[in-house]
């Protein structure tokens, strides 16, 4: 072998290199670069999907939070209403019962008064009869009933005034 290259050998080596070049281009570099590109695209795609899903989830969350707040407000309003209603009902009941009690009291007082008066009248007439009877027996004489009843009534009135 000598330092000066042999054209035939040069050609063989060049063909060898070109063969490797072709095979590498189509079986190594192109498929791997394609796969790298595809992977990059897929990752981009997944990032986009994740981003859109995240914003979707955030929208939903905001929506639900709004809903919850609304429900909360509604509930609070309802409770407040119920409390107010209950209070007014209590007032009403209290007023009613107070009125009723007043009525019952008044009626009872009236009745007592009436009974008392009736009893007084009864007592007076009984006392008058007894007194007249007693006095009649005492003097054995029938007094003028009407006249004496008047006298005795006056007397009892006087008694009333004295006892007062």
């Amino acid at each position: 072998m000598q330092i000066i290259p042999d054209p035939k050998v040069l050609l063989v080596q060049a063909i060898g290199f070109l063969l490797v070049l072709l095979v590498f281009k189509f079986f190594l570099f192109k498929p791997i670069m394609d796969i790298l590109d595809a992977r990059r695209a897929e990752i981009d795609n997944q990032y986009d999907t994740a981003e859109s899903q995240r914003s979707l989830a955030e929208d939903l969350k905001a929506q639900y939070e709004k809903h919850l707040a609304e429900i909360d407000d509604e509930m609070r309003a309802k409770i407040a209403e119920a409390v107010k209603e209950g209070q007014s009902m209590r007032e009403e009941i209290i007023t009613d019962s107070r009125e009723q009690a007043d009525r019952i009291l008044t009626r009872a007082q009236d009745e007592i008064q009436r009974e008392k008066e009736k009893a007084l009248v009864d007592l007076r007439s009984t006392v008058a009869s007894l007194t007249i009877g007693a006095a009649g027996k005492l003097i054995n004489e029938n007094l003028d009933d009407a006249k004496h009843r008047e006298l005795i009534g006056k007397y009892i009135d006087d008694l009333d005034e004295v006892t007062k």
Partner: peptide
């Protein structure tokens, strides 16, 4: 007329090509 290193070259070429094709 071919130096022996040409045979070695083509051995390497064969290994590289077969390796690339199998890998792909």
């Amino acid at each position: 007329w071919m130096p022996e290193m040409v045979a070695v070259t083509w051995l390497v070429i064969a290994i590289l090509c077969i390796g690339a094709i199998i890998a792909s």
